[in-house]
Computed example of a mutant assay.
Amino acid sequence: MSTLVTMPKNGSDVSKRNNLTSLPSFSSWFDNFFENSLGTEFLSNFNTGITLPAVNIKETNEDYVLELAIPGMKKSDFSIDVDNKTLSIASEVKHENEQKEENYTRREFGYSSFKRTFTLPDSVESDKVKATYKDGILMVTLPKREEAKQKPPKRIQIS
C-alpha cells in the first residue's frame, strides 16, 4: 500500500509533519488499494473452490500419460471426454450440510469445479484412452498409434 503520511527524516522540522498536502487524496488511496496486492488477494479469496489442478505429462514409447493431483474426490466426480482431437477433464462437486436444533438451523453448502482441456496429437489412438483414480491421483493414459511408436534401431549389414 502506498505511504499515507510522509515522515520527516532525523533533524527535519517537526512542524512540516503536520502539512496536510503530504496526505494522498481519498481517490488516489482507493485506486492504490485495488492496484496493489492487497486488493487482488482480497478479491481472489472469493473463489474457494478447486483451482485448476497441476498436470504432469509423460511420454513413453507406447503412450502419453497425464497425471493430475486431485485429492479428496471420488471416481464418479470426474467427467472425461474425447471429442475429435480434444480431451476434456472436468469435475463438479456440491456439498450440503444442514443441522437443525431447537433454537437454530445451520446450513452450509459448497461448490467446486474445474475443467481442463488438451489438444491431442494425431499420434493418439483416441478410441483406447483409459483413466484410473487412486490415492488422489487421476491418471489418464493416451495410447499412441502403432505407426507413431518408435521402432528399435536396426543394424544394416553391408554386402
Rank of each mutant, 00 (worst) to 15 (best):
E98Q: 12
V82M: 06
G110V: 01
S112I: 02
V82F: 07
F114A: 05
T119H: 02
A90Y: 01
I80F: 02
G110A: 13
P121E: 06
S112E: 09
E96C: 06
Y111R: 08
R107G: 06
E96T: 10
F78I: 04
N103R: 10
K94R: 14
F114Y: 07
T117Q: 06
H95D: 14
N84E: 15
V82E: 06
S112K: 10
I89D: 00
N84L: 13
E98R: 13
F114G: 01
D81Y: 03
V93C: 09
V93H: 03
F109V: 11
F109D: 14
F114N: 02
S113P: 01
D122S: 14
D122P: 03
F118Q: 05
I89K: 01
F109N: 14
E108N: 09
Q99V: 13
E96V: 11
A90D: 01
K115G: 00
S112T: 12
S113V: 09
Q99I: 15
R107L: 10
F114Q: 03
G110M: 06
F78R: 01
E96M: 10
K85Q: 15
A90Q: 06
F78Y: 02
F118K: 02
F114R: 03
V82T: 06
E98F: 08
L87V: 11
E101Q: 11
R116Q: 14
N84I: 15
R116A: 08
I80K: 02
S91A: 10
K100R: 09
N97K: 05
V82W: 05
I80N: 01
S113G: 10
K100G: 02
F118M: 07
T119A: 15
K100D: 07
V93I: 07
S79G: 02
E98M: 13
K100L: 09
T105S: 00
Q99W: 06
K115F: 02
E96N: 09
R116E: 13
Y104W: 12
E102D: 07
D83T: 14
L120M: 05
E101T: 15
